[in-house]
Design a protein around this nucleic acid. Sequence first.
DNA 1: CACTATTTGTCCGTATGTATG
DNA 2: TCATACATACGGACAAATAGT
Lengths: 265, 265
Amino acid sequence: MVGTARQSPEGGKAQRVYLLLLDDILRGDHRVGETLPAESRLAQLHGVSRVTIRKAMDALESDGLVQRRAGAGTIVKSPVQPQPGIAADFGTLMPQLVQMGQETSARLLSFAYVAPPAAVARALGTTALVQRAVRVRSIEGAPFSHLTTHVPEALARNFSEPDLATTPLFRLLERSGVTVDHADQTISATLATPDVAEALDLASGSALIALTRVVYDSNGRGIEHLSALYRPDRFRLEMSLNRIGEDGARHWAPVLGPLTQSAAQ
Amino acid sequence: MVGTARQSPEGGKAQRVYLLLLDDILRGDHRVGETLPAESRLAQLHGVSRVTIRKAMDALESDGLVQRRAGAGTIVKSPVQPQPGIAADFGTLMPQLVQMGQETSARLLSFAYVAPPAAVARALGTTALVQRAVRVRSIEGAPFSHLTTHVPEALARNFSEPDLATTPLFRLLERSGVTVDHADQTISATLATPDVAEALDLASGSALIALTRVVYDSNGRGIEHLSALYRPDRFRLEMSLNRIGEDGARHWAPVLGPLTQSAAQ
DNA sequence: CACTATTTGTCCGTATGTATG
DNA sequence: TCATACATACGGACAAATAGT
């Protein structure tokens, strides 16, 4: 199968090149049957020797993504993404699953009360203990998101480990008497550390979509800090924009989808 | 200076670890003065030898990001981002600069008519020649975005290279008689290939925010394909959400900023 | 003031990966 | 494709510095 269990090189330069080429191909930058640049060309582009390019190519070929023929060159075999997996409707500005005949499942990786990392402490405005829960969300057995939530201990004491498995965090917070008011989100990109790489079944050093959300109550106090990491090949953030106004200035309006349903995370 | 010209290890595992640790620190996961895990601990976490961790640490130390003392451990020196550089207001659903006392400048890297890559051909619905322009956008000399635009040749023939330097692409398109109607955006993450890495002044293999936008005219024909790559440490996509509705269902409304101003790209 | 545990600093021989021709 | 020379990574051991007991 293509979408899972790739056999990337061990570590070193070969893997770095492999990941870059893999990223290019999966993104669909090359047309089907298109010949990639020659190995010597790739070698100078990436600043490595041909042997290193060759190792990366070996992995790509055994992945079934490219096909090499002496004299002809290397052609892309499976350029287009088979299934984008999950497309998140971003019209709602919340990662929200659309077209979900398939169900997602969550697995709890860890659950503990810890001292908050710097970023969390800054966001929640406290250096006191926080409850940290780490989950991995999968669709049809394929993991696509790695979620780390931090909640102040004072709030989190009202619910425990089994609650998290069954009830959305929002419900639990409201049950604690908190009034969810607003949230700030930041979207970024990051590299997969070994632990999340293992959880998401990919190579350490792969690119991940990073979404950070801080939820505040009506008093402006931070009540939840979410750090979500998504596999780009299995999860996308999409949105549509309509143009409004006729003059030279750019006026865009988001196309808002239905603002309900269960957030996918 | 911290924000630029880091001296990362050559290739290999050491650089991979270096990038991962750098990513962690710049993201602010560690508090100031906090001691990092011991080298031996990091070694087993990353699945490498201690010597490799040590090389990565050497680079981080000469970057001034950490400080090592024998016996004591390694502490984070400059954990917080000095200047988040550019914060893009995402309430408008378009990367749009807010609070821009500073000016950005663009540099044209390449300009040519080429056969469209697979993804572009699919989006624009044509395999005919397209005009490709590659720009790098900087703020105060620090590059933060790498932009590649593709426009069908039929439309692009009405303007040329110098036009692109002065006039926004939207104006040029409308001058060509095109009616800009709507757009689709996708946000993802990708790895920096050597060419964009050099243009953005970072190490090959770094994580980048990838934003793809396809603009359509009123006939539903694709008229522009934008592939934007952003340095996460100098560009962020932010948004605010307000909660509406009181019941258990999650209802969120984006806080829409003023939908004008010049798009930053 | 020792004593201990831990962590960085330094060295080694060996194995593997990479560059070059 | 191969063989050789070089660079890097590995695992271990030991010393020096630090912090706490």
